[in-house]
């Protein structure tokens, strides 16, 4: 009958989809990371760009080759590997050897993501796993900080990050000296602008907030987790007797809160879970900063919460029309 000429298709409703897909989401994240990357190049020189490029290329190549070897469909065009490579580079020191950046992102992609089945199958943030492994493997390279090219003072202490100075027993005053700030407001300004030593992309709060604002406006990320994480860091560091504003501006809190604690795959989907995730990550970060071995705890804070996500996802919000089951009188 007319079937033969027409060849109709049967499918389930709805017969309509939005044009918004994974590639576009990842594209948004990449755009949002560009200011921070640009900041890294400005503060630490062109080598920052080189490290990032190597990391991205290695991540994409690792994903492509691994999936080819497994004879699976390659999905590099969804840009998720680019995001992983970029995020990893942004949390490395600018002086990282290029081979280390390459190993780190290949490791992140293959071990933390592809062996679990690729994007969506992993339970821990690949970039953070990559960084944690690099930190374990080559702590010397991973803690060799370069001063900002535009730092007001250049002396020996500037090679430590602000948090590093505190960890080595220094005080806020020492930090001020290291960035050439005369008082707390000046220190905050320097920290906010990002004119101090640190990982490539983590130093400038301003540029990170710019990117984050873009993601919030385009509804790519949910504000719950970052707000909870930053607030938890603020309160906890205040309780520990630290300068809370400084604690939030220093280190990777902002980068972690807006770009890693909001990673879709490895964070909770439930609203309460998101709050809990942020608070937990913030608390763990401060705990590690204060008591642990490392000057910075964002990586581990978020990774530890990643592991808890399956439980956080069990806190399901109220359904439409949900009525509390009435107790049956015995």
């Amino acid at each position: 009958m007319e079937n033969k000429t027409m060849k109709l298709v049967l499918s389930g409703a709805p017969h309509f989809v939005t044009g918004y897909d994974i590639q576009k989401t990842m594209g948004m994240v990449i755009i949002a990371l560009l200011p921070a990357l640009a900041g890294g190049v400005y503060f630490f020189g062109l080598r920052a760009l080189l490290v990032t490029a190597v990391s991205i290329v290695s991540a994409v190549a690792a994903e492509f080759l691994f999936r080819k070897a497994l004879r699976r469909e390659t999905h590099v065009t969804d840009l998720s590997a680019v995001v992983t490579g970029m995020l990893l580079a942004l949390i490395l020191p600018v002086s990282s050897p290029l081979w280390m950046a390459a190993i780190g992102s290949a490791f992140a992609i293959i071990v933390a993501k592809e062996l679990f089945g690729g994007l969506g199958g992993n339970f821990a943030n690949p970039a953070l796993v990559g960084r944690a492994v690099l930190l374990m493997s080559w702590p010397a390279f991973m803690t060799r900080w370069s001063p900002s090219l535009h730092a007001a003072v250049v002396d020996a202490t500037t090679t430590a990050t602000p948090l590093g100075i505190l960890k080595l027993g220094g005080t806020i005053t020492d930090v001020m000296k290291s960035v050439g700030a005369s008082g707390k407001p000046a220190l905050y300004l320097q920290m906010f602008l990002g004119n101090h030593s640190g990982s490539i992309g983590e130093t400038s709060a301003l540029l990170l907030l710019l990117g984050a604002a873009f993601l919030v406006v385009t509804r790519v990320i949910d504000l719950r987790t970052p707000v909870a994480m930053i607030a938890a860091t603020f309160v906890a560091s205040w309780l520990f007797g630290q300068d809370p504003t400084f604690s939030v501006l220093a280190g990777g809190i902002l980068l972690g809160a807006f770009f890693m604690a909001t990673d879709y795959v490895t964070t909770p989907v439930t609203p309460i879970g998101k709050w809990a995730f942020g608070i937990g990550a913030g608390l763990m970060t401060v705990l590690i900063r204060q008591l642990g071995n490392f000057p910075e705890g964002v990586t581990y804070g978020i990774l530890l919460m990643n592991v808890l996500v399956p439980y956080l996802d069990k806190i399901i919000p109220r359904k439409f029309g949900f009525v509390k089951p009435r107790k049956v009188n015995a």
Binding site: V17, T25, D78, L119, G120, Y264, V269, D313, P317, F320
Partner: peptide, 26 residues
Amino acid sequence: KQYEERLCIRCGRCANACPAQLMPML
């Protein structure tokens, strides 16, 4: 057009869209 189905990336858009306030991804 039928698009290729990918793994859930848990972005939560379905939960925001669900009028019954469910968690479709879960």
